[in-house]
């Protein structure tokens, strides 16, 4: 199992107030799965993604990534784990504006302490793979949204991580570009990457093989598309179920 999460809680403390973003989440993800997470705003999807990406720690519960429990890891080890095992793709791309495209793709390799020439070579390879080899010297603001997201995907892939975490990767894109990005992600899945994607769009969720429905910091349903199940239908069923309760 690539990911094991057992009874995860995450509480944000803001002065007197406490916000429970996660209230006991337990699940496991196998290598090679393509999971989409869906749920209303504030249901804790991003919080869960951050914990899965080792960018945040649960307040309680245990999280194990590729056999390594993150509990008790210091900043250096956790950062190393994040650097080697995880690639993030964000809704707003999150490229560094001062760097050009290829330098952006190189950043994770810098923290891997890879040699400069090797780094450049790998980054260019990745850009080729997402179809942006010819744009390597451009600044992010000279590229379209779809191109920006491809650069971000190249950056997420450059360390050859086991896990790709995409938080609403098509949220800032139009339908057509969104579709292109989905195809790119699908291809990664087919190449054997484990992919976890947060989305608000049920049409996008259909691309995945598993479907986690979250609400109020909990997992409401967890469907597996083993034999062409209609996951959208199941989603509606589950929301209806919620409302009648």
């Amino acid at each position: 199992m690539l990911i094991e999460a057992i009874d995860l809680h995450r509480v944000y403390r803001m002065g007197e107030n406490e916000v429970h973003a996660l209230r006991g989440v337990t699940f496991g993800i196998e290598r090679g799965e393509f999971v989409s997470i869906i749920g209303p705003s504030g249901s804790g999807k991003s919080t869960l993604m951050h914990i899965m990406g080792c960018l945040d720690r649960p307040t309680s519960g245990s999280y194990i990534l590729d056999g390594t429990p993150i509990e008790g890891l210091d900043d250096r080890r956790l950062s190393r784990l994040r650097n080697r095992k995880v690639g993030f793709v964000f809704q707003s791309f999150n490229l560094i504006q001062q760097l050009n495209v290829v330098e952006n793709v190189e950043v994770p390799l810098v923290y891997m302490e890879m040699d400069r020439h090797e780094r450049r070579e790998r980054a260019l390879q990745m850009l080729e793979a997402v179809g942006l080899g010819h744009r390597s010297q451009h600044r992010p603001n000279e590229l379209s949204g779809g191109e920006n997201q491809r650069v971000a995907i190249a950056r997420a892939l450059v360390t050859d991580p086991d896990l790709i975490l995409a938080d609403e990767p098509t949220g800032n894109l139009d339908t057509k570009t969104g579709h292109e990005i989905m195809e790119l992600l699908k291809r990664l899945h087919e190449q054997g990457k484990t992919l976890i994607m947060v989305t608000h769009d049920l049409e996008k969720a259909k691309w995945s093989s598993r479907f986690i429905h979250m609400k109020d910091g909990k997992i409401l349903h967890d469907f597996r598309d083993t034999d062409g199940t209609d996951i959208v239908g199941m989603f509606y069923e589950s929301t209806m179920e919620q409302e009648t309760q």
Partner: peptide, 16 residues
């Protein structure tokens, strides 16, 4: 700030 967040997400340690 944003750049710092991005670098951290990509594997930078506090020390870095």
């Amino acid at each position: 700030t944003k750049e710092i967040g991005i670098r951290r997400a990509l594997g930078a340690t506090e020390q870095d």
